[in-house]
Computed example of a mutant assay.
Amino acid sequence: MKAAVANTFDSILKIEDIAKPKIEPHQILVKIHACGVCHTDLHACHGDWPVKPTLPLIPGHEGVGEVVEVGSAVTHIKNGDRVGIPWLYSACGHCEYCLSGRESLCLSQENAGYSVNGGYAEYCAAHADYVVKVPEGLNYVDAAPLFCAGVTTYKALKVSEAKPGDWVAIFGIGGLGHLAVQYAIAMGLRVVAVDTGNAKRELAMSLGAEYYLDFKTDDIVADIISKTSGVHASVCTAVSKVGFRQSYDVVRRGGKCVLVGLPPEDMPLPIFNTVLNGVSVVGSIVGTRKDLEECLEFVARGKVKAIIEEKKLEDINEIFADMEKGEITGRIVVSI
């Protein structure tokens, strides 16, 4: 089968012809039709994070396709089913996190395209218990980004505990943020969007944001507080220290600052104000299978739609180069 393979860190991926995966009794084999490209894939291929993937590696954790082979122990999935293989490739199923509905915190989890081979290939083996079915009427290309970007932003908004009518500030209107705005609107929230440039302004306002602020020209904290009296929650998808601090400073008393992006710097936390104002600062990492089903349902009902540019797997190194330069709007999906 054809696959994009990382053989060494910080080098280009090679399109190789390798053996099709053989499945175990608990697995299924998925014929991949499309796979989203996430910044995490770039980090994996560069070995940027403390826990590094084992090479050679096939990246990709937004792979969607058709089931073509089912393991002998699998009873709930059949050939022909349309499924996606998310970042949470598998978990142990019996630790305190798995048993309490927080499986994305499982210390024994495997991650698609990181600790196990992912979806940058014609075929991918998957743990049958952790794939999620693609709703009828939703095509593979539109579905792919939801298996990471979609569920990540949807879960962050759930974590924020903002209620219909509450104000939420979304920092960064990119591949994650443009979905966060849409999920927030679909959930009945009022949105302030923060990014820079007229293109992002037009995008955010077209998606339903009530206000857009440019971090290069506006006084973000003062302006948001004057317009909203402080937001009930903020979701920071940006990767800058300044953005993270601003996302904290705009939250009203008793609100939540939800951190999603992974900046290289640390963010100092003002302990006195945090305690005095009863502000919660929380991290949110992807989502569970249930979260993913819910986020897909919003899209299937036409409430949310990722902005997608479709390319071919052979374009992956050019895609990574554009990603490093910050030249991608929305999400890239490779067809396979």
Rank of each mutant, 00 (worst) to 15 (best):
P164Y: 01
G119Q: 00
A128V: 03
K133N: 11
G175Y: 06
A112K: 00
V134M: 15
V141R: 09
F171V: 12
Y120A: 06
A156I: 07
L138D: 05
G177E: 04
N117M: 01
L179E: 06
L107G: 12
Y183H: 12
V132R: 03
V194T: 05
T153L: 04
V192H: 07
A121H: 07
A121F: 05
S115M: 05
A169D: 11
H178R: 13
I173L: 08
V151G: 02
A126Y: 03
A143P: 07
A126G: 02
V151S: 01
G118H: 13
D166A: 12
A143E: 10
K155Q: 13
A125I: 06
S108Q: 14
L179H: 04
L176S: 12
H127R: 06
D142S: 14
V168G: 11
A169C: 02
N117D: 15
S100N: 06
N139A: 08
G165C: 08
A186H: 01
G150I: 11
G150S: 11
L179T: 07
W167N: 10
V191D: 12
R102C: 01
N139R: 09
P145W: 00
G177Y: 09
K163C: 14
E161F: 10
L146T: 03
G172K: 02
Y130V: 01
S108A: 13
S104E: 06
Y183W: 04
A112N: 13
Y154I: 03
A184D: 04
M187Y: 10
A121D: 04
A121S: 15
F171H: 12
P145S: 13
S115R: 01
P164H: 11
E103P: 03
L105V: 00
E122M: 11
V151L: 03
G197F: 09
L105Y: 12
P145H: 13
A162R: 03
E161C: 13
Q109G: 00
A121L: 07
C148H: 02
A162S: 15
G137Y: 03
V116S: 09
K155S: 15
G174N: 14
I173V: 15
L176R: 11
M187H: 02
S104N: 15
A180I: 00
E122V: 08
V168H: 09
Y140I: 06
V131R: 00
K158Y: 10
L105S: 08
P145V: 06
I185C: 05
P145M: 14
C124V: 15
V168N: 05
Y123P: 04
W167Q: 08
T153M: 14
W167G: 10
G137D: 04
A162H: 04
V131H: 02
L99M: 14
A125H: 06
G150H: 09
E136T: 13
V132H: 10
G113W: 08
E110A: 03
A121Y: 04
A128R: 04
A184V: 02
Y114I: 14
A186W: 08
Q109F: 07
N111A: 11
P135W: 13
S100C: 01
V141S: 12
G137E: 10
V116C: 01
V132D: 00
A169Q: 07
V141A: 15
I170K: 15
S160I: 09
V168F: 07
E122R: 10
